[in-house]
Design a protein around this nucleic acid. Structure first.
Lengths: 248, 248
DNA sequence: CGTTCTCTTGAAATCACTCAATTTATGTGG
DNA sequence: CCACATAAATTGAGTGATTTCAAGAGAACG
């Protein structure tokens, strides 16, 4: 099997699983037809690099399924995750030639791509796309700023608790539940990826997860399957207000 | 003199100093006329809070002159700056009821405000505004992600050097110079504000500035006036590539 | 069954923080 | 103009959280 597959079957936009949340969410049928013409699917295997920072990038894309990360690095190799791409999230910037971040598939991933030029032209003619993209970008900016508070001011324990709370909430949202009481979910990230997300070393991540387990804040089954007996307790460990914002 | 003045003289948009960089940058004359109708100026004194996180916010605004900060805080008072508002920057989010951050004037500041409802309606009809706002938001997102790398992975010394480099570059851009060789500028922030920006304590900021001075990376005249004898040296202290991005 | 990758745990070192005292700059009222 | 108060910044000593370096356990895979 090839590591990167350029032409998996691309379904009709009408049948697309991310149709109602992606950059095309507000498009009318005729607007979808325009997009349909210049779209193509690409898939990547877990661990593969989708694009390197600085490389020429002549497409933009929506994540259809799977998870990818955006990371930045310093010369000496220190790396910081700066974004997490989930299904329906958008990659790339209209009007920019080169990629600003490394994009890496952490699971097998399928992306719905549009060549940049045609996409930019379509965007000029269909305000619905630009409107939705603005909305998504503003949401990302809010998320980035929440993350900055975490990186700059939270302790290692609070960082871990915050990440667990984010994943728990997102999982609840997917299953249309309200985040409270006992919650169970799988961590979609390795310890190393968690460390890159949180600005910690992987050893510290491991230690703090052990500590939260020892203190009864979480229970573990294997390395990845987490049970949170009391979501409010987790939230207070995260240092946030219990009324904290939602990331649906 | 009142601390907050609701009706200073608002000049015609055509004479506006931030006309070519603000959210209205791409507007045609007739589009400006629309904005002109619902705009009003407000000014705040240095140190004043413009708006509290969570408060109802029924306007959006552009900074005309002065500097303000966006900050987030944890319950116990730890605070992290998440944005720095300079002239032409935009505050507020169309389609949102309440403020997501504390906005504080760090110098005397003048803002060009629009009531939210009318602004949203104008935005629907004039794609030029939405286009420009998207562009500005994408720029802010890039800046936030650069900042995340700093917060998560840089040492205290690198953080200080990075901040000095940012201010130096911005100052150079204002004076239409290329950032290189010897540069001189004023710090627009107190040590405490720098600490909130960098995710450090003010004592650490003070110590690292002293260290950079001792090592000849910078020279100080008073507390705020900085000379950088060798910009490349400063850049390498910041841990970035010397080709680092611009924040004009 | 060995190899590899992920994760955990321990011990020592380091970086930044906390607490505390002092200096410098700025402003105010007598 | 001086004395005093206040705010901003510096510096020192000690502590503590996180990293670094190192070793080993557990799971996955050919």
């Amino acid at each position: 099997m090839p590591a990167e597959d350029v032409h998996p079957v691309a379904p009709q936009c009408g049948d697309c699983p991310i149709r109602h949340r992606a950059v095309c969410a507000r498009c009318e049928a005729d607007e979808l037809d325009l997009l349909e013409e210049s779209k193509y699917y690409r898939s990547f295997e877990a661990g593969q690099t989708v694009i390197w920072s600085g490389d020429r990038m002549d497409f933009v894309a929506s994540v259809v399924s799977g998870i990818a990360t955006l990371t930045q690095t310093l010369e000496d190799g220190r790396t910081q995750m700066v974004g997490l791409l989930l299904p329906s999230d958008f990659v790339g910037r209209p009007g920019r030639e080169t990629a600003a971040y490394n994009v890496t598939a952490t699971t097998d991933i399928v992306m719905c791509c549009f060549r940049k030029k045609p996409f930019e032209e379509i965007m000029l003619r269909t305000p619905h796309i630009a409107q939705r993209l603005l909305e998504m970008t503003l949401d990302e900016l809010d998320a980035a700023r929440e993350w900055m508070l975490l990186l700059g001011r939270k302790t290692a324990r609070e960082k871990i608790a915050s990440l667990l709370a984010i994943v728990a909430r997102r999982d609840a949202a997917i299953h249309l539940r309200y985040p409270e009481g006992t919650m169970t979910f799988d961590l979609p990230l390795t310890r190393e990826a968690m460390a890159d997300y949180l600005g910690l070393t992987l050893e510290t991540v491991s230690r703090q997860i052990s500590a939260l387990k020892r203190d009864g804040v979480i229970e573990l089954e294997g390395k990845r399957h987490v049970t949170v007996p009391d979501f409010d307790r987790l939230m207070s460990e995260a240092g946030d207000d219990s009324d904290g914002g939602f990331l649906p």
